[in-house]
Computed example of a mutant assay.
Amino acid sequence: MSESGVPEVDDPPADELITVLIVDDDSWTTRAVAAALVDDGGFTVLEPQHSGDDAVEAFDRHRPDLVLMDVNMHPGMSGVDATKEIRSLDPEARIVLLTTVSPGPGITRALEAGAIAAVNKSATDVELVGVARSAAAGESPALLRSLAEDIMISGDITTDVHDAVPELTRSEKLLLTQICEGLDYAEIAEQQVLTIYTVKSHARNLRIKLGAKNLAQVVVRAIQYKFYVPE
């Protein structure tokens, strides 16, 4: 067992484990999240960090496959700024936000900084592990099932965008809605009677058209431009 109380797992082989850095100023949260991941047996959990500054240093030292990042931490560097710093060190860094039942200010700014998804701290162990595995594998609309609702609850978004609202075709609006609703590529392909490759290609084009760097930012843009409003 490590000094942080996180048990160590011997198998599967270490080179097959997903390396995760957990960042939260609440030690109870880091312990609970770490325990869920370690119990699954598919993760190596690094020593948890409790500030943005320490998170950046730990990321630079270990280069984990995934970072689970609290948005608001006190005192010192916030999760938003830590996300920016980590992404400046590695533009391919995969960061998932740890949010609360009522997400507060910062979630949209962290998504703009490069986080690819968010997971609620009250999520079940199964949900948490699922999000961690999916995020470590790369972007997927399935990671975004509750993101639009979380953004609206947070109030951390402005619909006052300076760029002209892009014109979307009917099929692009449909795809945008499906992404915002968190359908995975296979579900979208089945509903639209397309190949997964074609759906991914259309999603890339939509991202470019909306000026988004990732799928999470596609959801942000959908709300900013009022293409999508969660029920």
Rank of each mutant, 00 (worst) to 15 (best):
M1W: 07
S2L: 02
S2N: 14
S4H: 10
G5L: 07
P7V: 00
P7D: 00
E8S: 14
E8Q: 14
D10N: 12
D10R: 14
D10A: 15
D11P: 03
P12R: 03
P13V: 08
P13H: 06
D15Q: 12
E16N: 11
E16H: 11
L17V: 13
L17S: 09
I18N: 14
L21I: 05
D26F: 07
D26V: 10
W28F: 15
W28Y: 14
T29D: 11
T29C: 14
V38M: 05
D40A: 12
G41C: 06
G42R: 15
F43E: 04
L46E: 08
E47I: 05
P48K: 08
H50Y: 13
H50F: 14
G52W: 08
G52C: 02
D53R: 13
D54I: 06
A55T: 08
V56R: 04
V56L: 11
V56S: 09
R61M: 06
P64H: 10
P64K: 08
D65G: 04
V71R: 09
N72C: 05
N72Q: 11
G76V: 04
S78F: 01
V80D: 11
T83Y: 07
K84D: 12
E85F: 07
S88R: 15
L89D: 02
L89A: 15
E92L: 08
E92H: 06
R94N: 07
V96G: 06
T99C: 01
V101A: 13
P103V: 06
G104A: 05
G104M: 09
G106C: 00
G106K: 03
T108D: 03
A110T: 10
G114V: 01
A115H: 07
I116M: 02
V119R: 02
S122G: 12
S122M: 12
S122C: 06
A123F: 12
T124H: 02
D125K: 13
D125A: 15
V126D: 15
V129D: 10
V129A: 11
G130F: 01
V131G: 00
A132G: 13
A132R: 13
R133T: 15
R133I: 10
R133C: 09
S134R: 15
A136C: 09
S140Q: 03
P141G: 07
L144S: 01
R145Y: 00
S146M: 05
E149T: 06
I151F: 05
I153M: 12
S154L: 11
G155F: 12
D156R: 07
T158V: 07
T158Q: 10
T159K: 12
D163T: 15
D163C: 07
V165D: 09
P166G: 12
L168I: 05
S171T: 15
E172A: 06
K173W: 04
L174A: 12
L176S: 07
E181Y: 01
E181I: 01
D184T: 00
Y185F: 00
A189V: 00
Q192N: 04
Q192S: 06
T198L: 08
V199S: 10
S201N: 10
S201Q: 14
A203K: 00
I208K: 15
K209N: 11
L210I: 14
L210M: 04
L210P: 14
L210S: 10
G211V: 02
K213W: 05
K213D: 14
N214R: 04
A216K: 09
Q217N: 00
V219L: 02
V220H: 01
I223Q: 07
Y225N: 13
F227P: 02
Y228W: 08
